[in-house]
């Protein structure tokens, strides 16, 4: 673990809270921490005890997460982006430009029809066509990881056209 001042401060604050001696009002470990010096630091005692190793707080999430990005849907056996897909991706591109620390996994999915292997490749094509479109909008490739899940992770376990259309998709998940 990298003992940055921020983490040490958070650890100390947590130790204090656990001991009942602190006066922290917020659950430190789950509050998003802005890039400036943390509020926890102002509440730390002047002579800190030895820091206790605690799990690194989930404090590095940007205010906008991968789930803020819209899901993109596809036609049967297709990786072409239609008007609806492009509109969703235009909105996603804006969100990513506005949140330059937001890095995401681009996950390609398929409906259950066809073989595992073919759908694996089709999901890859879908994810790559989405990533390419976002790259063309100026979002650098190093902000993405592209993964195909083929037909392994359906959003809808049904076996009809409605379920299939919801499963032919590219989702954005935390990288």
């Amino acid at each position: 673990m990298n003992w940055s001042p921020r983490i040490i401060a958070a650890a100390m604050a947590l130790a204090l809270a656990l001991a009942g001696a602190g006066c922290a009002k917020k659950p430190v470990a789950t509050t998003p921490v802005p890039p400036a010096p943390t509020p926890a630091q102002t509440e730390a005692p002047p002579t800190p005890p030895t820091p206790i190793p605690v799990p690194e707080p989930e404090a590095t999430k940007p205010p906008v997460s991968a789930s803020s990005l819209q899901v993109v849907y596809f036609g049967y056996d297709s990786f072409q982006l239609d008007d609806g897909a492009r509109a969703a991706l235009d909105a996603n591109a804006k969100l990513m430009r506005d949140n330059p620390t937001l890095n995401v996994s681009v996950d390609g999915h398929c409906d259950e029809r066809g073989t595992v292997e073919y759908n694996q490749a089709l999901g890859q094509k879908r994810a790559e066509s989405v990533q390419q479109y976002l790259a063309d909008q100026g979002i650098p490739a190093n902000r993405f990881r592209v993964i195909s899940y083929g037909k392994e992770r359906p959003a809808d376990e049904g076996h009809d056209e409605g379920a299939w259309s919801r499963n032919r998709r590219v989702e954005f998940t935390p990288r």
């Binding site: 292997e117 694996q120 490749a121 890859q124 592209v146 195909s148």
Partner: peptide
């Protein structure tokens, strides 16, 4: 055996 970027299948 193969963990190259992207697909490694079949």
């Amino acid at each position: 055996v193969s963990g190259r970027p992207g697909l490694n299948t079949s």
